[in-house]
Amino acid sequence: MSETAPHPRLLYCHCQYAQVVPKEVKAAVLEQLCQSGTAFEAVADLCEMAARRDPALKRLAGTGAVKIAACFPRAVKGLFHQADADLDPQSTEVLNMRTLAAGEVCARLFATDLAANVPTKASTKPENPAP
């Protein structure tokens, strides 16, 4: 288990205790992870772990770059914070399985670059963005 390998670690959340992530999306993402031959971490439900302040979240948040297939980046950031396991916004990319297709999630998971997208300050989206 290397801590200094070049690629980001991969973390998948199964959102086991709610039906908010489309079943077909999470099933397809997990299937491609399993078929890929690559190493990854999978958890049953980040919310449940955050509620228990599971020390495992510190293990998952620490030690370098990570890509997380879960839900909204703002929510994922808050969940880790709640467990005293802050994510590093510079080295974390969250892929939202509630809004993205499985193919889009997997393309970003397996890409060698990391597009950090965890919010670092309060921001709002305008209702009608300028064209």
Binding site: S2, T4, P6, R9, G37, L60, T63
Partner: peptide
């Protein structure tokens, strides 16, 4: 497996 790290 593969060339990616996992959590220590």
């Amino acid at each position: 497996g593969g060339d990616r790290p996992v959590a220590p």
